[in-house]
Computed example of a mutant assay.
Amino acid sequence: MLKGILLVFFGACSFGILSTFVKLAYHDGYTLGDVTGAQAFFGAVILWVLFFFQSRTSSYKAKEIKLITPRWKMVLAGTCTGLVSIFYYQCVKLVPNSVAIILLMQFIWISILLEFIIYKKKPTGLQFLAILLVLAGTILASGMVEASISSLSLKGIGFGLLAAISYAGFLMLSGKIGNEYPALQKSALMITGACILIFILFPPVFLYNGALSGSLLKWGLIIAIFGTVIPPLFYAEGVPKIGTALSSILSAAELPVAVMMAGFVLQEQVSFLRWMGVCVILSAMVLPNLKYLRKGGR
């Protein structure tokens, strides 16, 4: 259990790093299609290369794995990952970053709601309390209290909510299907689906228009590693061990990391009130996991 908790937590932290590098890529003049396309393409290549080398090891060959879920379903499920990138990165362009983050964080209650509607699984009392704390902390940590919301883009809000729904769908699918696959293969198949979707919506002109000779290669690799390789790989291994509800709470680590990156890398002013929100979120993530931490994950 503890291993699953740590994997999901660090996967969420990796997601939190993304927005900073995406902003830097936009600052260099690259488009939504360039950023999402490079992320998915490099991510898929890295994962398949890692799986290729893993599949050549004697320990992997010794395992007899009975695959129940068809590969095409895994690829189709991976479109949720592509949708998260498209919707969230577009949201960031249309509304203030603090508002975009708070919209994305709505995946917490959306994932719990979806699990209750589809699987009739009610959240525990501690999980419900943690969700309330996460939402309250999100409002503080995102800077929503201090920000002006008089001129918000309705289109931007829509993209943010779509990103939250897609993220909740990704968490649910990651925990429910294809768990018989090795984590690397599962992640590679899902990211391949994301790459196909993104290339359909945004033809990969960056592959031949010279963009990779600039800084897009650097940003694409960084965003792919922290957004496409580490999180799906860690989630594929961790979510089945702890469930969707607990995963959604731990995934709130994305916001504190995003706030810290904004302060340290982008030199944005982070107020005391926002740091208080970060502390509330961190306490909310620890609360439902105390019994597992005390038992050492047994």
Rank of each mutant, 00 (worst) to 15 (best):
I249Y: 11
G214F: 12
L162P: 08
L233A: 09
L154S: 11
I191Q: 05
E146L: 09
V257I: 14
L201C: 06
G37I: 05
P182C: 08
L83F: 12
I139H: 04
V22F: 03
N209L: 02
F234G: 11
K63F: 10
F264H: 09
L50M: 15
S247I: 06
G37W: 01
L6G: 11
N97I: 15
K61V: 10
L18V: 10
P231S: 09
L197V: 00
S283H: 09
S150K: 09
A38P: 00
R274K: 15
E64D: 11
R298A: 07
G82Y: 10
A62Y: 12
L103P: 06
I110L: 03
A253N: 14
W219N: 02
Y26C: 03
I191L: 10
Q39C: 03
I46T: 09
R56H: 13
V145A: 13
I177H: 01
L76Y: 04
S58E: 15
F42V: 06
H27C: 08
T81E: 12
C13T: 11
Q127V: 02
Y60I: 11
I101L: 14
G156S: 01
T244I: 15
L135V: 02
V84P: 13
L217S: 10
P203V: 01
C80T: 07
V270I: 15
S55Q: 14
H27F: 14
E64N: 10
I131K: 04
N97V: 13
I222Y: 06
V92Y: 12
S58R: 15
L161Y: 10
L161F: 14
A38S: 03
L140R: 00
F206D: 01
M276E: 08
K155Q: 15
L47A: 06
A183C: 11
L197Y: 00
A245C: 09
L293F: 15
P182T: 07
Q90R: 15
V75F: 03
E237T: 09
G220Q: 03
V145S: 08
V278T: 07
S14W: 06
A136E: 01
G137Y: 00
M105Y: 11
C279T: 07
T20L: 04
A77E: 08
W219L: 03
T192R: 05
A194C: 01
I177V: 08
V280C: 06
S271Y: 13
G43P: 03
L18M: 12
G37S: 04
A284F: 05
A253P: 14
S213C: 04
